Amino acid sequence: MGRFSKMHGLGNDFVVIDARDGAVEMTAARAQAIADRHAGIGCDQLILIGASDRADVSMRIFNADGSEVEACGNATRCVPLFMGRDVLIETKAGLLDAKEVEGGASVDMGRPRFDWDAIPLAYAMDTLTMQASWEDLPAPAAVNVGNPHVIFFCDDLDAVDIPRLGPIIENDPLFPERVNVNFAQVAGDNHLRLIVWERGAGLTRACGTGACATAVAAIRRKLMIGPMTVSLPGGDLVIGWTPGGTIRMTGPATHVFDGEADWSRF
């Protein structure tokens, strides 16, 4: 039997498995089975906490479809809560410093990248105002914050058919590693509304890396200067970034319950 915790950040929910004392073999099929909300435990992402030679712990992230991804902001905020202390976390996106704050955590998410081949895109283009769009959407921006994001700043977010357009854009050949699709609207001074179609997970109540990428794109486009509040369906995050620096994300993290499971049954 293996122990796990069910946690969430703004409704973006996780099964968190501590694999530091005993290795847990995780395949795409097993992650998908655990994430299944009817026949499994149920989650948007599965998180494996392991040992690290470079940091306090390592973190691997599997989407509900079984794909392994580089970064997840909401999950990163859950790690210091899971550990009960401030932690340096080794991820595929680099080392992330996560500190406990009242009601959640504050995380240094590292420096964003803007080169077309760092997103990555299939061919060279300006990533601040891309020479690409879909139907009536405005020309987007692209940012890599450990994982790839494309951001559309819309005049009327409620008029966008996100469930239809999200998967079309996620799987467009322009994005060889697929992409997280962010639909944003300026809601006020240093305030954004955001809905994210997440790569491998679909519509989600919150996406921490999406909030980071969208805030960075808004600052690059001079829509605001930050720090800013990013309002997602699940709640608010505060994102700060100064060009040339690292991104700081602050927001809630919640422990729901602990449990045990036989991973060989999945």
Rank of each mutant, 00 (worst) to 15 (best):
A217Y: 11
R221F: 10
V143Y: 12
A28F: 07
R111G: 01
P138F: 04
I151V: 15
D189W: 04
R164Y: 12
V143F: 13
H149M: 01
G208V: 13
I162F: 03
D18G: 07
F114A: 13
V160Q: 00
A39S: 10
F14Y: 02
G146C: 11
R3K: 11
P243F: 09
A19Y: 09
G66N: 09
V87Q: 01
T214L: 14
A139M: 12
V256A: 11
P80N: 09
S52D: 00
L88W: 08
T254N: 02
A23V: 15
L88G: 03
N147I: 06
V16P: 04
F183P: 01
I47A: 09
K222G: 06
R248Q: 15
E135Q: 12
V57L: 02
E198V: 09
R113A: 13
F114R: 09
D36W: 03
I219R: 08
A105H: 05
A75M: 11
G73W: 13
E100A: 15
G240R: 11
N63H: 11
D21M: 11
V160C: 00
V230H: 06
V238D: 08
D155T: 12
G245I: 14
H255T: 09
A201P: 02
E177K: 08
L203Q: 07
K92R: 15
G73S: 12
M7R: 00
V179F: 00
G11A: 11
A28H: 09
T254P: 00
W263H: 02
D136R: 12
M1S: 07
A51C: 10
I162M: 06
D18N: 12
T214Q: 08
A33K: 15
I119W: 12
A201H: 07
G22D: 11
G226E: 07
P167K: 03
L95C: 06
D126G: 04
Q185H: 01
R178T: 07
L95E: 07
L81A: 14
F62E: 03
K99R: 15
E260L: 11
R221D: 10
G22V: 10
R265Y: 01
P148C: 12
